[in-house]
């Protein structure tokens, strides 16, 4: 079935089985591999993208759910044209503090951090604990994720 979805600001036509998770549409069909597969069950956050501006688990969103809607991925928040000031601040803070270790979860972490800082520009530790708990990092870079969110908040 064909669907039209705006991906990172660009109207895109996809023709897939309607129940295909958005995660695999992005990765397999659109070659946007920054969004990661970690659990397939909304338990790890590696596949976090924004759907109409709100963080969602792309492994649980089906192709039919996104028809006519806006999807932003890590490639979108990185793109010169599509990056928001919040996304730029988040990524700069991540680099400044060398947050990443294996890095596999970090696109999801960044999408969640952008989501958080967009809605709460000066989050408390408690806000971070609530808004970021869905994103697992097995390298346990949490200490620096927290610091980087505060760092980004300073510059927004």
């Amino acid at each position: 079935m064909a669907f039209t979805v705006t991906i990172n600001g660009k109207k895109t036509s996809i023709d897939v089985d309607p129940e295909t998770p958005l995660l695999w549409v992005l990765r397999d069909d659109l070659k946007l591999t920054g969004t990661k597969f970690g659990c397939g069950a909304a338990l790890c956050g590696a596949c976090t993208v924004h759907l109409d501006g709100e963080a969602v688990r792309s492994c649980q969103i089906q192709a039919r759910d996104v028809d006519g809607r806006d999807v932003t991925t890590i490639e979108g928040v990185t793109g010169e044209a599509s990056a928001t000031p919040v996304a730029k601040a988040v990524q700069a803070a991540w680099i400044k503090l060398d947050v990443a270790q294996c890095g596999y979860c970090q696109p999801g972490q960044i999408m969640s951090a952008v989501g958080l800082l967009t809605q709460i520009p000066k989050p408390t530790d408690d806000d971070i604990d609530k808004a970021m708990d869905g994103n697992v990092c097995r390298c346990a870079t949490y200490h620096r994720i927290r610091a980087a969110i505060h760092e980004a908040a300073k510059t927004i």
Binding site: P21, Q60, D133
Partner: peptide
């Protein structure tokens, strides 16, 4: 709360594949 919206994971029906 932010990022942890119910509908970020829970859709209109049970997921047959993930069990969500």
């Amino acid at each position: 709360f932010v990022n942890g919206r119910c509908t970020a994971c829970h859709r209109d029906e049970n997921s047959q594949h993930s069990g969500v």
